[in-house]
Design a protein around this nucleic acid. Sequence first.
DNA 1: CATGCCATGTAGCACTTGCTACATAATCGC
DNA 2: GCGATTATGTAGCAAGTGCTACATGGCATG
Lengths: 188, 188
Amino acid sequence: MTTRESATKSQMSRETLLPLLAGHVLQHGLASASLRPLAKAAGTSDRMLIYHFGNKDDLIRQILEYIAGIYSAALDASMGDERAKTRQDVVTRVLSHMREPAMQPFLALWWEIVAGAARGTDSHSEAAQQMMERLLEWLEEQMPEDDPDPKGGARYLLTLTEGAQMLGTIGHARTAREGLLASDLTRD
Amino acid sequence: MTTRESATKSQMSRETLLPLLAGHVLQHGLASASLRPLAKAAGTSDRMLIYHFGNKDDLIRQILEYIAGIYSAALDASMGDERAKTRQDVVTRVLSHMREPAMQPFLALWWEIVAGAARGTDSHSEAAQQMMERLLEWLEEQMPEDDPDPKGGARYLLTLTEGAQMLGTIGHARTAREGLLASDLTRD
DNA sequence: CATGCCATGTAGCACTTGCTACATAATCGC
DNA sequence: GCGATTATGTAGCAAGTGCTACATGGCATG
């Protein structure tokens, strides 16, 4: 029984643990996600984490998967009611969405995931791709109704906003802002 | 004598060590940059690294500073002879420059630095800002001669190419490519 | 009631981490 | 040449790492 829904007997299943573990990773990052701190955050022991998840790699993989799920839900929740009018509107929405306090933990974690992917860590790559694909879908749905190329446009805006996000992270928000002003988006 | 130029007596100064340390960090990343492996790579001991650099934080700070210097030199070296004709040209140059094998270690390290900056590590933020500023200068010099707004344009292209870079890193190079195709850059 | 499995606690192991104490060789100013 | 500073080796420490061995309670099924 590797993955079963009926959790009638156990109080501490993967399903119970994962939210707590995810919370800890979101708050403190992957760098300090070692067994004992994680266990403490989830109210259990390193012993039990290995018991439930096999080894640390699989633990992290499943936590990241779970977090990707949360992220996806967060995107769904913040779906704007009315469509954006222009691409500029979309960019503004994305950036202000990412500036929300609730999104900060995801942002900080995001770059750790990217760094892991850059070094070839499979679990990180998988999570990264999953999250980007989801964000891309979300962006496509946000595109203006009259956009001549919603698919391409969404990819364009994704590239642009992710670049801006990175610049903001390293304290170059101003550079990103000026860059966006010089893009075609602000041409009237 | 914290920082002296005359290194007549010592065979193993900071200056001798730094290139070797930087090489190790570029190859293996910050995550595995602990004292003993670093010392081994530089042909010395953890004991001497602390002796020369004070503590690990300062060690990393100085290594990153040194690497930022190398990066800057690498940018200088790859300065194109003739100016680019269009912004599209500039993007192509930047991306192909970053695709060179010699740049790969910088790229992988880059995301670790960004991740560190996102978590508030000062030394990482400093290195990141330094490298981005340098890249921005380089980009400004690459802008087409007849560009209506070279400064803003450079910032725009920086944002765009960094986004593309990230997408490439996590295996979404295709998304970035399609995004660039949908930008104004490819409009004739 | 017996048997066996699931869940968990307690200890511990071998290894790595940053850093320090202590001794000693080399070298420099005098 | 001598005393002081500089550079280096050897050992080690306390904490943290992933993971394992062993025992043991509880529960369900025979």
